[in-house]
């Protein structure tokens, strides 16, 4: 893995992705122990305070420090997008494997199931979950994770079917390998490059989806700062003082870009052919 890491750092875009992702992770960790102000603290005197030494990113109408809000928002964004990506990876891969290796009618049923479920927009899923369980971080994670999980399942089903048709899978079966060994030793490693890129995309989509859900009130509780809610709260200022929208927007763009580049870099780094030894 050290060889893979070296080749990740050596590729320029991989390094940028790693750096951007590292900044988001660092911001999250820092926000746990320190923010310049309490992100929820209202200060009428600081209403729409400009960028200054006291307020690095300025302040909103209620005088809340925007830098503190962006830092604290990173927490929610990273938590929700990471957890949703894990949910998507697990459900997607399990469904895809079931659809790819099970015989006959099970395969067909799982395949149709995925196609039906993928037609449900994440938002609809979220509304159903909220109706049942109420709006919470867990609801957001499950809604985004499952919604993206079906998308992952569809792509990975095709990818696993492709790998299963490879000569080396036939050769492994000819050596006595059973279904489990075929899946974990041959199919998964060879499908992993696609999964990596897919998950970096899912993570990026999850950042946006979390923002959208928060915006609509289906996401995390309204007391929790998120970049999506910041965008929502600040959007009325678009024509008056657009500079305040730059911060949450930039944070979202940097995170999405970082995850995507990191995914591409990881895919290339995992390929022994592309790697220099």
């Amino acid at each position: 893995m050290t060889g893979a890491f070296r080749s990740l750092v050596r590729s320029r875009s991989g390094l940028l992705g790693l750096a951007l992702s590292a900044v988001v992770v660092a911001a999250t960790l820092v926000s746990l122990v320190w923010t310049p102000y309490d992100p929820g603290a209202v200060d009428p005197r600081a209403s729409w305070a400009p960028v200054s030494g006291a307020h690095w990113f300025g302040a909103d109408r209620l005088g809340r420090d925007l830098f503190s809000l962006v830092l604290a928002g990173a927490r929610t964004t990273l938590l929700v997008s990471l957890a949703a990506t894990v949910v998507a990876a697990v459900t997607g891969t399990l469904l895809a494997a079931a659809a790819a290796v099970t015989p006959g009618w099970v395969r067909a049923a799982v395949g149709y199931g995925i196609d039906v479920l993928i037609a449900f927009p994440t938002l609809l899923l979220a509304m159903v979950l909220v109706a049942v369980h109420g709006a919470s971080t867990l609801t957001a994670v499950l809604a985004i994770g499952l919604g993206e999980g079906f998308f992952v399942a569809r792509v990975m089903r095709a990818e696993m079917t492709r790998v299963l048709a490879a000569d080396y899978v036939l050769a492994a079966r000819a050596g006595g390998a059973g279904t489990w060994r075929i899946l974990y030793a041959h199919v998964l490693p060879n499908a992993l490059p696609t999964l990596t890129v897919l998950l970096s995309l899912v993570m990026a989509i999850a950042v946006l989806a979390e923002a959208a859900l928060s915006y609509l009130g289906y996401g995390v509780p309204s007391s929790t700062p998120t970049w999506g809610r910041m965008l929502h709260d600040l959007q009325t200022q678009l024509t008056i003082r657009p500079q305040v929208l730059v911060w949450p927007g930039l944070a979202i763009v940097a995170t999405v870009l970082g995850f995507n580049l990191l995914g591409d870099g990881l895919r290339d780094a995992g390929d022994p052919k592309a790697r220099r030894t």
Binding site: R173, P272, K273
Partner: peptide, 28 residues
């Protein structure tokens, strides 16, 4: 059944394939 024949593959009957490159797992 698959389960009953797999123990024979490799141990009772070994295979050599035509394309040595594609018959090997590129990541293993």
């Amino acid at each position: 059944r698959e389960r009953a024949i797999a123990p024979l593959r490799g141990a009772g009957i070994g295979f050599v394939f035509q394309e040595p490159l594609t018959a090997l797992n590129p990541l293993m």
